[in-house]
Computed example of a mutant assay.
Amino acid sequence: MRVIAWAAALLLAVAGCAVRVPPAPRVTMTPAPDAVGAPPDGGLVVRADGGRLTNVVAFAGRDLVPGAFDRSRTVWRSSWALRPGTDYVVNALAVGPQGVAGRLTGRFRTLRPHHEVALASVVPSDGETVGVGMPIIVTFTRPVENRAAVERALAVTGPVEGAWHWFGPSQVVYRPMRMWPARSRIAFTAHLAGVRAGPGTYGAADRSVSFTVGRAMVSTVDTRVHRMVVRQDGVVAQRIPISAGMATTREYTTTSGIHLTMEKGNPVRMVSPGRRKGDPEYYDNLIDYAVRISNSGEYVHAMGNVWAQGRINMSHGCVNASPDQARWFYEHALRGDPVIVTGTSRRLEWNNGWGYWQISWPDWLSGSALHRVPEFVRGAAGP
């Protein structure tokens, strides 16, 4: 009997020393595995219960899905919304106490929307070199109802702070608080794919544009002394005698304010607005070396009336200069170069061409759907 009792005690002792293996972490994902028609605007979320995520790899078709862990590494989220009508594959690994692993492999497909919205145009063009005042003008293929969601998906990488301002349901414009530093590089990406822009309407695809800011060329036009001074990187490059609008009517008055150069033509056909052939002051001329600075027909251009330039304002609203100096300005101008006009009774409207610098910074911020300065990524200025 003593032997039996001793054996029983030994078995109890061994049983008391047994190691208890903890359960494996539970790994889940949203959208759920095998989901069909998953909403893309919620993105992809992977969670670990009872452990920490060590690896998450997701593919949209053949493309890797970008994402990030939270601080505790218990949650991983995709950086942006998901592509509509796309197959996704997800592999995730989590490790719990004592190195016990939990795994997840899942597939799902996002919904195919009833309507899609895309970017109809982006200004400036990809790879373009622009002036220091250049805005980013984004136009959509259809009206955007959920402006806040779309605005969150628009990312700008640059050296200075800026913000978006909506000019109607189909256009939004980005402008820095102060003009771009010369020779900086700017990158814009619309992470639009999968963003819910309205009922049954989702972004169709992402789009990226990168551009470079050139030298800082700023021109100041004083219509009272009939002079334009062009500075490049703060150094005077040209002093140009000019003739501005004669100001006999509103349309023949040059607008005062911060203009931006918009486009160039050599020659440009200019026709008197609201007049027919035979009417007083009717004209229909081809004008050389013309650089547009507004939508109301204002250009800096060449004109042979050298006798008036530097002496009197005799134009129909444009700023004209001698052919040689107008050609110099034409050849050196980039889209987005500021042309600051003073001395007239007519003010440049913010919606006349690219008159966005006429809007104060607080008023500009009020046009954001987020009502705040957006997050931006600082990039290095310089070549």
Rank of each mutant, 00 (worst) to 15 (best):
P267G: 11
V172G: 03
M228G: 04
P181G: 07
V268N: 07
V156F: 06
T141C: 03
R250V: 11
V195H: 01
H165F: 12
P176M: 10
T255P: 10
R175H: 04
P241K: 01
G245I: 02
P135N: 05
G257Y: 02
V150E: 02
A153D: 04
Q171K: 14
V268M: 13
V209W: 09
A197H: 00
M179E: 15
T212M: 10
M228S: 03
D222Y: 11
P273A: 13
V271C: 13
P176K: 11
V132M: 07
I136R: 05
V268P: 06
S210C: 11
A204N: 05
G214H: 09
V195N: 01
G131S: 13
M179T: 14
R183G: 01
L154H: 08
G133V: 06
R215Q: 13
T255C: 08
H191K: 13
R147Q: 15
S208E: 13
Q171F: 01
V130P: 05
T255D: 04
T189R: 14
S184Q: 06
A244K: 01
S184K: 00
T261V: 15
Y202D: 07
V225D: 14
S256P: 03
Q232N: 12
V236H: 06
M134F: 04
I242N: 03
M217I: 14
F167E: 13
Q238E: 08
A149W: 00
V172R: 00
V195F: 01
A155G: 07
E263M: 13
H191I: 09
P143A: 02
A190W: 00
A204K: 04
G194S: 11
T157V: 11
V221H: 01
S170V: 00
F211L: 09
P176Y: 08
M270I: 15
D222M: 07
V209D: 09
S243L: 04
T189F: 03
T248H: 05
T261P: 12
R183W: 00
G265P: 06
D233Y: 09
Q171R: 15
M270N: 09
A153M: 07
A149S: 10
V172I: 15
T212I: 07
